[in-house]
Write a protein that binds this DNA or RNA. Structure first.
Lengths: 255, 255
DNA sequence: CGTGGGTTTGAATCTGTTCAAGGGAGGTGG
DNA sequence: CCACCTCCCTTGAACAGATTCAAACCCACG
């Protein structure tokens, strides 16, 4: 029942970590994520201290910048692009546990090793902190710790939703959930009729996120299109005439 | 592919919240979970303040003490028994997102409503805090906040493991993972050969946790027994001759 | 001793996977 | 500019693992 090795999810274990474009510290107070990252918990003067602890890096598409099981030396804050987080089995089966983008904090680890991998989907920019440095920062700024806790709580809720999806939803419900989730990311809670989504991930990524195969994702999308629930445009762009109907399917309220 | 309505997971939406045995505050410093709950983050004198904020309650088996989607007014710390956390779909399909027991903290919510339900499996004892009270406590004791963060990080790791299980593992791997997880709970990281597990949950609970049906769980357990990987004793007790082999299967290292 | 919840087992069915093949977009080099 | 290659996506047909439906079993309990 679970998909095994296909061309897509072979244990490619690709190109190793390449940190390109190390730009050194920039000024955090003009940072793109000033408003929504962990940094939003800090005042301007505190930010200055933060800046000294941070290193900005750029990661090209397809490159893994956190290797599953490697030493958890750093924390990251995403300032641009989209990252996929994943876990794998020895034979190459892979589960994407989440897609994260701007403002997202990354690197919570329970042991001294990362329990997951992280790969850039498109061009990704991030802010890196060493673990000891972040520790001393949270020591100093309890508000930051509070911010981290609320971020963790958010992720936990998302993880529980995803467990429901993976354990109990049909292919159609899964794909609808994914699409609706993308809608929520772009627009907020209020999604206009005939909204458009544009996402950078491939069918294979979506499949690994939804616990399906590429073929099933493709077929299911075709089905949704046949039923007039989505229309597909060029380049990973999809229109949703009636987000409400899509949500109903995603939540298992209709066949 | 996902199981739909069977006798087991019908939308029973059963007996409402009953808080039995309200015992009032006891002394936290002699509490059973003093060593492993959130309280472990506090000194004795701080505990005293905590005690005044806490109410101890007892919940009988089968009773839901957190209703999915209800107002998130309280936090709980489990001091005895086992609780199942779950999420449901409107037609009654259910996913158990975790089994939690002594020392576990419960009630992190991102909005003002619980995103999950909680039901007592056996006789459960817990310590209840009102949200505003806990907020003022964390304000006062940053170490407690840190403790909460580390607990959340732990849960996040567990959730990611579970996503891998639900999305990509076979029935045999899932059941083995569950059993091995139970072994880890009872013994620590070092599991003796021929270890025994005794758990309170039914096959239906296990099925809802693993994203399977009762029948598949039962059949799979029989298969493991046939292969000499487990032997079953009376009353939800199972022996595991070779935990290492079980782990290998759980991690997808063999057929 | 009958009743009911939980568990096991069997047979048929079905959803999603596997295997196979073709189409289309983008990039490279002749 | 076009041939060619690669990667991604789509579609079809056969297959398989898990579900569904059905029945029987076991055990605790009144």
């Amino acid at each position: 029942m679970p998909p095994s090795l296909t061309a897509e999810n072979m244990p490619v274990r690709p190109r190793r970590l390449v940190i390109a474009g190390m730009e050194g510290c920039t000024n955090c107070s003009v940072c793109e994520v000033r408003a929504n990252g962990i940094c939003s918990a800090l005042r301007d003067d505190e930010l200055e201290r933060l800046a000294r602890a941070a290193v900005r890096i750029t990661v090209p598409p397809g490159h893994i910048f956190i290797e599953e099981g490697s030493r958890a030396t750093d924390f990251f804050n995403i300032t641009g692009g989209t990252v996929k987080l994943f876990k794998s089995l020895p034979d190459g089966r892979r589960q994407i546990t989440g897609f994260v983008s701007i403002g997202h904090f990354l690197g919570l680890a329970v042991s001294d090793r990362y329990a997951f991998g992280a790969e850039a989907i498109d061009q990704v920019k991030l802010c890196r902190f060493s673990r000891p440095k972040l520790d001393s920062l949270t020591e100093e700024f309890p508000r930051m710790e509070r911010r981290l806790l609320s971020e963790a709580a958010n992720e936990l809720v998302a993880a529980q939703d995803q467990m429901l999806l993976l354990g109990r939803k049909t292919a159609r419900e899964r794909v609808s959930s994914f699409l609706y989730g993308q809608l929520e990311n772009h627009h907020g809670d209020v999604i206009p009729a005939d909204a458009r989504i544009s996402f950078p991930m491939t069918r294979a990524d979506i499949a690994d996120f939804l616990g399906l195969t590429v073929e099933t994702v493709s077929r299911t999308l075709s089905g949704l299109r046949r039923d007039g629930l989505v229309t597909m445009n060029a380049g990973h762009t999809i229109s949703v005439p009636s987000p409400a109907r899509l949500r109903a399917i995603a939540q298992g309220e209709e066949g």
